[in-house]
Computed example of a mutant assay.
Amino acid sequence: MEILNTAIKFALLISLIISPTLLFNKLRKHSFKYPFILYLISAVLITFFLVMVLAWWSHFSTELLLSHYGYYSGNLNETERMKNVAVENLDKINTLRISKMGIGWPLKAIMFYPFYFPYLVIAYLGMYFYSKKSSQKVSLQKDSIEF
């Protein structure tokens, strides 16, 4: 169960890393008047959705693991919550309960996004200069073949 939760978190994280590059390549195939603005708007929308999904999944997977280990958070007192938890899982339950405390997942996502946003600009600039450099190499190779 923990492996599946971790795999889904990594898949969402990898999609956050790869999505600006895929979006740049998709927009480069079309000729738009203002490609950077279109890239920025669509990248912000797509990646903000992915950040929200990642934050939600992080919260939901903690709840899922708690219920998997027998912890029931619907009861009011601690003894009823912990009555189905095996003794060997008490440390895991306490760790998961502590990680669940604090701010909620929407606020975590909103607070994470300002740190992620510069990556969108850096990824665009990197892909832009890489595409310019590779197109210059291709044009130089075509010129050298013609001689």
Rank of each mutant, 00 (worst) to 15 (best):
K9T: 08
G126F: 08
S61D: 08
A86G: 01
I8A: 12
I93E: 02
P20R: 00
P35T: 09
V44S: 08
K100T: 01
A11Q: 08
K33V: 08
E78L: 11
N25E: 09
L22N: 12
M101T: 09
N75P: 03
L76T: 04
A86N: 04
F117R: 12
S99A: 13
F112H: 09
N25W: 10
K100W: 02
H59Q: 13
I14G: 03
K132G: 00
K137H: 13
E63M: 14
V87R: 07
Y113I: 08
M101N: 05
V138A: 15
H30A: 03
G126H: 06
M127S: 07
K33P: 00
S135P: 06
G126S: 01
I93Q: 03
N25T: 04
S15M: 10
N94E: 14
L107T: 01
L107V: 03
L125S: 07
I98E: 14
A55Y: 10
I103Y: 02
A55M: 15
A11C: 09
D143P: 02
I103K: 02
K137M: 13
F32I: 05
L40M: 02
T21H: 06
E63C: 10
A123C: 12
Y72M: 14
S15Q: 07
H68E: 14
K133G: 00
V121F: 02
E88K: 03
M101I: 07
Y116S: 01
G70A: 01
M127A: 06
L38C: 06
S131A: 01
L16P: 04
E78I: 05
L140V: 07
V87L: 11
Y34D: 13
S134G: 00
S135T: 11
V87H: 11
L66C: 10
F60S: 15
F117Y: 14
I122A: 12
N75R: 12
A7H: 08
L66P: 01
S131T: 07
Y69E: 04
S61P: 01
I41F: 14
W105F: 14
Y69R: 06
K133Q: 03
E78P: 05
M82E: 11
G74Q: 09
E63L: 15
S99T: 10
I14E: 08
F115W: 10
A43W: 00
F60I: 10
A86P: 04
I37P: 06
L64E: 12
S99R: 14
L54Q: 13
S15I: 03
F117D: 06
E63Q: 15
G70E: 05
K83W: 10
V85A: 03
F112E: 05
L38H: 06
G104C: 00
N77C: 07
K142G: 09
I98Y: 08
D143K: 13
T47M: 12
F24H: 04
H30S: 04
P114H: 01
K92V: 05
R97D: 09
K133T: 03
T95A: 15
V44T: 14
A109Q: 06
Y119M: 13
L12E: 05
M52A: 13
G74F: 07
S67V: 09
P114C: 02
S73L: 11
H30D: 09
I110Q: 00
F112L: 14
S131R: 04
L54D: 10
